[in-house]
Design a protein around this nucleic acid. Structure first.
Lengths: 229, 229
DNA sequence: TCAAGTCAGATTGTCGACAATATTGGGTTT
DNA sequence: AAACCCAATATTGTCGACAATCTGACTTGA
């Protein structure tokens, strides 16, 4: 198995951590599976030292759980954890939207309006197919977060929490019932930010995320009841 | 130098991580100082392996920053980072208070009222000296957080963020201008929770933390301008 | 038949040594 | 005197080997 993405980092352990994160988020390493240090070390062609460091980092990201003398396991997504995570996200991204309403520069606002137009055009041209914007510069949520200007908040959301959030969003994308509704909500949030209405921006962002989590919970519930049948 | 607290963990690296965290939060290892792996390894009587693992964990906690091929440094507290951190805390603990308003059981509520009475009595008996409640079971904020029932939120606040928050609170405690005001605010928050008023509980918790951060910012500003004089 | 105990195999935790990179101090040049 | 270069030194990154612990199958006895 070869690594599709191979950005040379300064240190092996960083490399491995990135590759492992990608592999887990994309589902190449299945949920709940055990992480075998000797096996992965051989696979990536490194010794166990850097690999262990990478695993410790993944534990910090909440992608694996470690038990002493037993080893690491990839987390298993489940509805309750998802709801808990999205509640946190609601609080944090809500705050980010509030802050963005006072700090976002005018040109970034217009740039975001352009982005939403692009999304709109994509929906029109592709029979409402969901626009894949995972993590890239076209990710509306990431743009808002960065506009908050709060370094700590940005770091927490984009570096520590977003790996797990992305895993859940991968599911959302498949089961999203109405991408146009999401786009409308994005537009409303951006309007509030453009008008410097922090309270409103926060409220709308919260509702937007809350709604997404409810849709996702439904989808996950259906999925589990289907497999258990 | 001996370790005051020595709770035997299953693994050395956990031990070291805990001891280092304590040492940094308590200021035994000064801010901004470099972490020398050989030195600390000798000091704690372990090899560099587990020590490095501990450092990686501390990096995840935001207590140190690491640079490839250079090493780790203890973070340096400064006003901007503090404000950023407390803004996050505002969002998260505000949410915790909101959740607690619907999930906190009646006996825990009475127990918390008793705790506040105890704090009141302490203030009456000790000429308004600030009651030290760092991290223990008498910590009002921690009790609220746990009452939220959101596992992810609890983990984030108590395990990942609280180390840094405690470092800042250590300063607050010294410069707290009016502990009775803080107590009044705690009481108001608890009242809102007891009445199951989630909106109000969140609002009050946010104001409470915001006020604390402003006081702390003032204190830190005075401290820096004093030393630079 | 089943439960408890035992033992081999495999995996994780820890260590000491080597390689790669950064830091330093002295010396040289302009 | 200041700036630059280079070598010596120290520190971090990586590796392979050993020790401690867990896992699972087999044996044994009730």
């Amino acid at each position: 198995m070869n690594n599709l993405i191979s950005i040379k980092s300064a240190t092996l352990s960083e490399d491995i951590a990135q590759q492992l994160t990608h592999a887990i988020v994309q589902g190449h390493i299945p949920q709940g599976s055990k992480i075998s240090e000797p096996e992965l070390a051989k696979q990536y062609g490194v010794s166990r030292g850097p690999l262990r460091e990478a695993i410790v980092k993944l534990e910090g990201l909440g992608l694996v759980t470690r038990t002493a003398n037993v080893g690491a396991r990839v987390i298993q997504l489940n509805t309750q954890d998802m709801l808990d995570t999205f509640t946190m996200r609601e609080a944090l991204e809500g705050m980010a939207a509030r802050l963005a309403a006072t700090t976002m520069p005018a040109d970034e606002i217009s740039s975001l309006y352009a982005l939403l137009d692009k999304h709109q055009a994509h929906l029109d041209a592709n029979q409402d197919e969901h626009y894949v914007q995972q993590g890239g510069n076209d990710d509306f949520h990431l743009r808002i977060i960065h506009a908050s200007g709060n370094v700590k908040l940005i770091r927490l959301l984009t570096e520590e929490l977003y790996a797990v959030i992305r895993m859940y969003r991968r599911h959302t994308a498949d089961h999203r019932s109405d991408p146009r509704q999401a786009l409308r909500e994005h537009k409303a949030i951006l309007d509030a930010i453009a008008n410097h209405e922090g309270d409103l921006a926060e409220l709308l962002m919260r509702r937007h995320i809350s709604r997404a989590s409810q849709l996702l919970a439904q989808a996950m519930h259906q999925a589990t009841s289907a497999t258990s049948r």
